[in-house]
Design a protein around this nucleic acid. Structure first.
Lengths: 214, 214
DNA sequence: AATAAGTTGCACATGCGTGTGCACGTTTGT
DNA sequence: ACAAACGTGCACACGCATGTGCAACTTATT
């Protein structure tokens, strides 16, 4: 009993959804490495033809947009679910959880440099940025984070330092554990903590252990 | 009296060299913002036609190559002329002097992400990297730089943290003085110094003053 | 003033990715 | 088994940047 329209329609095929998903996955992978990857490459990586891709998306723009939005949604979720009374700890925690969403970060970072999408990525990632800004601002007031750099600028630098580690991980093969610690340590360094302080903080805070942030 | 060949040739026109230089300058500017800037844009920014560009360079590749090489030469010069007995100081000094070559860094950083040129940039910049690696390695042994990260990895992260500041400067308008200090402070943070240590080091080292590194 | 160097403006070929149309298979739901 | 949903393979048009060829023109050099 069709309810949507008065036209008699049949339920869509199950494999269509699966193929759409395959396209999204393949696209995330391909565009993460090369933001200009041709649709041909994406489609064939998903086991389909370029022509078939147009059955799921109206074109490149829609595909990319979907990818950006879903990736950003994921990261925003991670960010808004992350917090801690101590600002530096919150910062490290945020970095660590982002490490475990490496794939998404890579994609977003790649698209954030391509002219047609800069704006969209920035907009979609606003929540993460707000979280970060809030943590930094709080940390500066409370004294856990360096006050010698304008908070907004510092937030951007911390952001970039986290991304630096995540991208460096694509070159130097880093284990999960190594990456986990490296992001925290690096972010804290940019936030103004000396390396001993950072290490002490991490080692004395069980919430920052990898097991706690799977 | 022609000496080069037995063909009778005339000296090339003076303005040709000037135009070539104008092309290089315009290209550096344009490609620094957008590595894919069409030759048309570059040529017209230099007050010439795209067609005329081919009178100076065999094509895009040669132009880009010339640009990369000259930029890298400049940065390598800066790097090799920079040193200091104290490793952290040397690091800050290197960062600061790179700040004052912002234009070149921007160009190189932009090209370093474009597939056809990654390799060339990396090769051309080898001297800077060696310098940086050496400073970091020394600093780790002597104790001025954090030993909790593999030296090679740390060097790459410091590199990226410096570039982060330089790029951030393109967004947030930073004065010369602000940028100068921000790079140093940021680099030292990544190197493991706490923000108070970094500030103390900078303020107590006259060689790091902006006037000393014009 | 004569001449070569340099520039312009146009035309044209080439390559590459995108987007679309259409006929013909293949798979799935009912 | 039948029809709709989906995929394939091909063709074609379009846009955009690169690279060349060539005649006509301008500018510097001698």
């Amino acid at each position: 009993m069709p309810t949507i329209t008065d036209e008699v329609r049949r339920a869509p095929r199950r494999d269509a959804a699966a193929n759409r998903q395959a396209l999204l996955t393949a696209a995330a992978e391909a565009l993460g490495e090369n933001p200009d990857a041709p649709l041909e490459a994406i489609a064939s990586a998903a086991g389909l033809t370029r022509r078939a891709l147009y059955g799921h998306f109206t074109g490149r723009d829609e595909l990319v947009a979907a990818l950006i939005d879903s990736g950003a949604t994921r990261l925003n979720l991670v960010a808004t679910q992350t917090d801690h009374a101590d600002a530096p700890t919150a910062l490290a925690m945020l970095g660590a959880r982002l490490w475990h969403a490496l794939g998404h970060v890579r994609l977003l970072a790649a698209m954030a440099v391509r002219e047609p999408h800069v704006e969209r990525v920035a907009a979609a990632l606003a929540p993460v940025r707000e979280r970060l800004d809030a943590i930094v601002a709080r940390g500066v007031v409370e004294g856990g984070i360096r006050p010698d750099i304008a908070p907004e600028t510092l937030a951007r630098l911390i952001e970039r330092s986290a991304i630096a580690v995540l991208l460096e991980a694509s070159v130097t093969e880093l284990s999960d554990a190594e990456g986990h610690r490296l992001v925290m340590v690096s972010v804290l360094g940019t936030a103004g903590l000396g390396w001993r302080e950072a290490a002490a903080l991490i080692d004395s805070t069980p919430e920052l252990a990898m097991e706690a942030l799977a």
